[in-house]
């Protein structure tokens, strides 16, 4: 299973925005397909569900929704593939996953309402900023 993603090749540059967009979807699908493996090797069953992880991946991708330059998208795709590769290869440890994609993701959701001031958002985050 892991080997299927392990030898992912970095494709040549995308010619157009449409091609880059298609590649992002492909990457998203690859990532989603590796979720069961990830759940298994990092023992995430009791902390997070596959659908939550899927939305985490989606929101990580959506963070860069404003990028329109195909070259930049290719670069981000490369970094994403690299990250996915590391995760699937078990190069990370469980707390990395928890911190980056389980808890960190929840925090992002926590800040959803934007009517609070900068001060209050920082206040909720911690005493030091």
């Amino acid at each position: 299973m892991a080997s299927s993603v392990k030898y992912l090749r970095v494709p040549p540059n995308s010619g157009s925005l449409e091609e880059a967009r298609r590649r992002v979807f492909e990457f998203f699908k690859t990532a989603c397909r590796s979720i069961p493996t990830i759940m298994e090797i990092y023992v995430l069953d009791d902390v997070v569900s596959p659908s939550q992880l899927r939305s985490t991946i989606a929101s990580e991708i959506r963070k860069n929704a404003h990028v329109t330059n195909p070259k930049v998208i290719d670069m981000l795709l490369f970094k994403g593939t690299e990250e996915l590769n590391l995760i699937v290869e078990h190069s990370k440890q469980r707390h990395h996953m928890l911190g980056q994609y389980v808890l960190g993701h929840n925090l992002i959701h926590d800040q959803g309402n934007n009517d609070t001031s900068d001060f209050l958002q920082k206040f909720y985050k911690g005493n030091y900023y």
């Binding site: 609070t116 001060f119 209050l120 909720y124 005493n127």
Partner: peptide, 18 residues
């Protein structure tokens, strides 16, 4: 550093006021 999830006094009142 502060203990646990504590905040400075004036910050708490400032946040509460908001």
């Amino acid at each position: 550093p502060t203990v646990g999830d504590a905040r400075d006094d004036w910050k708490i009142i400032r946040a509460l006021s908001e």
